[in-house]
Amino acid sequence: MGGACKALLPLAGVPLLAHAVARLEPQVERLALSANGDPARFARFGLPVLADADPLGPLSGVLAALDWAVALGADAVVSVAVDTPFFPCDLVPRLHLAAETAPEGLAIASHAGRAHPTFGLWPVALRADLRATLARGDARVMGFATSHAAAEAVFAPQTPDPFANLNTPEDLACAEAHLAGQP
C-alpha cells in the first residue's frame, strides 16, 4: 500500500480501523489497538494504543495485549487484523467455543482449510511462555499456536473471504466493489 498506515486507509470513506472496531466492539468488553510508532495518529478512535516492547511481528502485539489485559483482570484477549474488514461478526463466540476444546484454551480461526492465527483467542495464562518464546527470537504465530495445541474455530467458505487481507490497491478496490454491491 505504498508504506501507508493500513489502519487509516479509507474503505468506503471510513478508515479500515473503524471497520474493525465496528465488527469487534459488540463482541468484546474492551478494545485496544496494537500499534507501534506515534500513537497520536489514532487519537480520534479513543482506544488505548499498545506498543510492542520488542517488535518482532504479530506475536509481539499479542504479548502487549496480554500484558494490558492482565492489568485489567481479564482472562484472555482476542486478536484481529485491521486490514481484514470482513472478518465474521460472530468471531469471538466461535473462538470461545473452540477454546473450550483446547487444553490451554487457545483458539484460532480457520476458513476454507486454512488457519488464520492472527485471529485468535489468547489466554493470559500463556503470557510467560509467549514472552520466553519471543525472547528466543521465535515470532512464528502459527508455531506458537501449534505448540499450545490451539483449537480451530472453523468458518464455512463464503464470499468475500472473511479473512482476506487488503494488501494492494487492487484488494482495496475489490473490497470497495463488494461494499457497493458490485460483483
Rank of each mutant, 00 (worst) to 15 (best):
residue 45 F to A: 08
residue 80 V to F: 03
residue 140 R to E: 06
residue 126 L to W: 09
residue 152 E to N: 05
residue 61 G to C: 07
residue 105 G to D: 05
residue 92 V to W: 06
residue 106 L to T: 11
residue 33 L to Y: 03
residue 27 Q to P: 10
residue 37 G to S: 10
residue 128 A to G: 04
residue 77 V to L: 04
residue 31 L to W: 08
residue 95 L to P: 03
residue 50 L to K: 13
residue 66 L to Q: 15
residue 118 T to R: 04
residue 96 H to D: 02
residue 71 A to V: 07
residue 96 H to N: 01
residue 176 E to N: 04
residue 79 S to Y: 01
residue 3 G to W: 07
residue 36 N to G: 15
residue 175 A to H: 11
residue 57 G to R: 05
residue 6 K to M: 08
residue 15 P to V: 01
residue 134 L to G: 06
residue 18 A to G: 09
residue 47 L to Y: 10
residue 151 A to S: 13
residue 93 P to W: 13
residue 161 D to H: 12
residue 66 L to R: 09
residue 84 T to R: 12
residue 26 P to D: 10
residue 128 A to Q: 12
residue 108 I to P: 01
residue 133 T to S: 13
residue 152 E to C: 12
residue 112 A to H: 14
residue 19 H to V: 08
residue 146 T to F: 03
residue 109 A to L: 05
residue 1 M to W: 13
residue 123 P to T: 06
residue 34 S to T: 11
residue 179 L to R: 00
residue 1 M to S: 15
residue 62 V to P: 01
residue 121 L to C: 14
residue 18 A to N: 04
residue 81 A to L: 00
residue 103 P to D: 12
residue 146 T to P: 00
residue 135 A to Q: 14
residue 83 D to Q: 02
residue 70 V to G: 01
residue 62 V to W: 02
residue 100 E to W: 06
residue 137 G to I: 13
residue 59 L to P: 09
residue 78 V to P: 05
residue 157 P to I: 00
residue 1 M to Y: 11
residue 113 G to P: 13
residue 53 A to H: 09
residue 129 D to P: 07
residue 129 D to R: 15
residue 35 A to M: 10
residue 151 A to L: 11
residue 42 F to R: 07
residue 2 G to R: 05
residue 80 V to C: 05
residue 76 A to Y: 13
residue 12 A to K: 00
residue 114 R to F: 11
